[in-house]
Amino acid sequence: MTYKTLTQKLSMLLASALLMGSAIAAPLKIGTNPGMLGDSLAVAAQEAQKQGLDVEIVEISDWTTPNVALAAGDLDLNYFQHGAYLDNEIRERGYPFVKAGVGVLPNIGLFSTRIQRLEDLKQGATVAVANDPINQGRGLVLFENAGLIQLRDGVGTKATVHDIVENPRKLKFKELEGPQLVRALDDVDLAQGYPARFVSAGRPDIATSGLQYSTVDDVYYAILFVARENNANDPRIAQFIRIYQQSPSVHAKIDELYAGSKKLYSLPWQK
């Protein structure tokens, strides 16, 4: 073997070793949304660091980019979507995704600044629901559970306002984008809402005074840890999810972010 050949082989081996070291050292990258999800993941990342697992939390403000980035390989995992949203994304976009683990279940509620009991909702009242097909059905089921409407048999959480077959109070349904429901509360008599958004907006008093809440039976809407099919068996993913689910510090942070009220969330993996 010539000196030149030996040098070339050593250079190749060194480059290979550096690449392997870089891969080993690369952090587990998790995409999420700011607020409750990002803050609770940050605590889990600190706990993971103590166990020798390097984790990078990437906060993304929209609901599209986390799946695009995961599919492209820019993320190893994401944590922002519930089962209904994930199923729709796979159906509509063909993403090669799988559920890697279950996270927190954010309850939704019916909120009002005008009435204190559902019985006081007047005839012809204006009520607000989400306008997207994924969250509108969930909200309408909550209206039905509250005894305010009846939906067509069998539609369940796939319901739209067109599936309302009984509306004895002649409620006027106003369809709004999910993030606008919090801001619209003062303009309607009753609104579907997300308690965590009220807490984030500095209104924990509203979050904890809902007139009706969903429950742990709504587990299809638990936030999921989602991976690609080709990396779902990465042991780092299983380790991080285990930390998130078992760490008392993470549980305490989630509770803090939900104003200490168990009406606003549940931890399905404990059931």
Rank of each mutant, 00 (worst) to 15 (best):
T5R: 15
Q8Y: 12
L10K: 11
L10Y: 02
L14N: 06
A17K: 14
S22D: 12
K29C: 01
K29M: 10
G31N: 07
G31S: 00
G35D: 11
L37I: 03
G38Y: 00
G38K: 04
V43L: 05
V43G: 04
A44S: 05
Q46D: 14
Q49V: 06
Q49K: 14
L53H: 02
V55A: 01
E59S: 12
E59R: 13
T64E: 06
T65M: 09
P66Y: 08
D74Y: 03
D76W: 13
F80Q: 07
A84P: 07
P96R: 10
A100M: 02
P106S: 14
I108G: 06
I108L: 10
F111G: 14
R114D: 06
E119P: 11
L121Y: 01
K122R: 15
Q123F: 07
T126N: 14
V127H: 01
V129T: 04
L140Y: 00
V141Y: 02
G156W: 09
V161G: 04
I164D: 08
P168M: 04
K170I: 04
L171I: 03
K172F: 06
E177C: 04
E177H: 03
G178M: 14
G178S: 13
Q180Y: 14
D186V: 14
V188F: 11
L190I: 05
Q192A: 02
P195G: 00
P195A: 01
R197W: 14
R197L: 12
R197V: 05
I206K: 06
G210Y: 12
D218N: 15
D218T: 02
A222N: 14
I223Y: 06
L224P: 07
A227Y: 11
A227I: 12
A232P: 12
A238W: 03
Q239N: 09
F240H: 10
R242A: 04
I243Q: 08
P248R: 11
I254M: 13
Y258Q: 09
G260P: 07
P268R: 08
W269P: 11
Q270F: 09
